[in-house]
Design a protein around this nucleic acid. Structure first.
Lengths: 223, 223
DNA sequence: CGGTGGGTTGAGGTATTTCAAGGCTCGTGG
DNA sequence: CCACGAGCCTTGAAATACCTCAACCCACCG
């Protein structure tokens, strides 16, 4: 199940997406692959690396002592995750499907930010946009109904990963539930309701390919 | 009910707490007072100022169209709030009690950060600590029971505002409820249970002065 | 003194969870 | 090639944590 996590291969410098101003620095390492279900880093571990998803999908979450789980974000192709201001990760990150990531040493990054105000601004922007996502998610978790939560989730995923009108979700119902603060059954029921209302359709024989038929019907629910 | 919000008095430079490296810059304006219940700024308004609570308490929240409210944070003496990376506020902020704030122009701040890496780092640190708080709060809102939420709230307030063993809460039960994603009745019942268990005591004739009698009893609940 | 703004408590309702059963797909191994 | 189990999803029925509605209390204040 687990790949050998501790071997982070060094390599030649590359682009790191939004941090493209870093192209020619030595902080960047090469790509790395994780099998579906593999842990990329654990909560409270030293935050040595910053990651970018090249292909695949990642969930990051916190656990309560009795196993209750709250997923705070899904990271899709292009997304940067594991960016910490402190010394340790505050989440566990796992590959949802087979996933390729690129990584950079955090300390190098912090060191560069000291002198390069462009990079410093990028770090602030990324942290601020994580914060903004968290703020919206608090409203969802604290005050929205199950149907509203699922509608908001679908709109978010539609925005982030729809290709050719088809939303191919990488995550299972349990992941969605733990993201939305619900149970997997409640998520399933909500999707069934939206399906019955003609707001979405399922494609193929899997239940993870979704087509939004009535985006405004969803938007009404996303108060 | 509302004070004249649009007049922000200019004044001589002062310290702004954590941003103390800014002492000699012209970005800082003088103090300003808001009456209990007054709006300090509204969601989606231009984020012209950054605030620091001198005395009093502030709540910042988002509203759904039908009036459901999610308070994302309480700002107490010393706290900085209204710090946005974008152009507009993403929350409404209101004085919970009569409150004195100090304020700084955001644009000046951003301008200073361009050149002063110390200030830039402070901005990042503050944003990161807001993010950390939001991340913990997502776990609370998504996965904790009402008793656990109230216990966590009490521990947070104990840490932030207890003086001489007494926690004098500035906010009412409804505010606590909207912070914790509950109703005011549920908050009240949870406090009664903790009182009955001998974990906390009420002081005086008001129900807002709380003494923690058994902090470890609370910690057990704060999983 | 009456009204308003908290706060508590009870009774009943309900959205969501929990428990349980069943279906489908897919990989694996006899 | 088929049987089998594992993983995932859906759906129903029952349980429950929390919400809603309502009554009441107390302090404060004009």
């Amino acid at each position: 199940m687990f790949v050998n996590l501790n071997v982070k291969p060094a390599g030649r410098p590359r682009f790191l997406g939004e941090l493209s101003s870093l192209t020619q620095c030595e902080a960047l390492l090469s790509e790395f692959k994780y099998n579906r279900g593999a842990e990329i880093f654990g909560e409270a571990e030293p935050a040595d690396f910053v990651y970018q998803v090249i292909e695949g999908a990642v969930r990051s979450y916190k656990l309560l002592s009795d196993g209750r789980r709250q997923i705070n974000a899904f990271h899709l192709a292009g997304d940067i995750f594991g960016l910490e201001n402190g010394e340790t990760y505050r989440f566990t990150a796992e590959a949802i499907v087979d996933t390729t990531v690129r990584l950079a040493r955090r300390v190098s990054l912090a060191h560069i930010a000291e002198t390069d105000t462009m990079v410093a601004r990028h770090l602030l922007n990324m942290t601020a946009s994580n914060l903004q996502h968290a703020e919206n998610h608090m409203l969802l978790l604290g005050r929205k109904t199950s149907l509203e939560r699922v509608a908001a989730f679908l709109l978010e995923m539609d925005r982030r990963l729809t290709a050719a009108g088809i939303m191919a979700l990488p995550m299972c119902r349990r992941d969605i539930a733990d993201y939305l603060g619900l149970t997997l059954e409640t998520v399933s029921r909500a999707l069934s309701i939206l399906h019955a209302k003609g707001i979405l359709g399922f494609l193929g024989q899997t239940q993870r390919q979704i087509v939004l038929l009535d985006r405004s019907g969803l938007a009404e629910l996303d108060i």
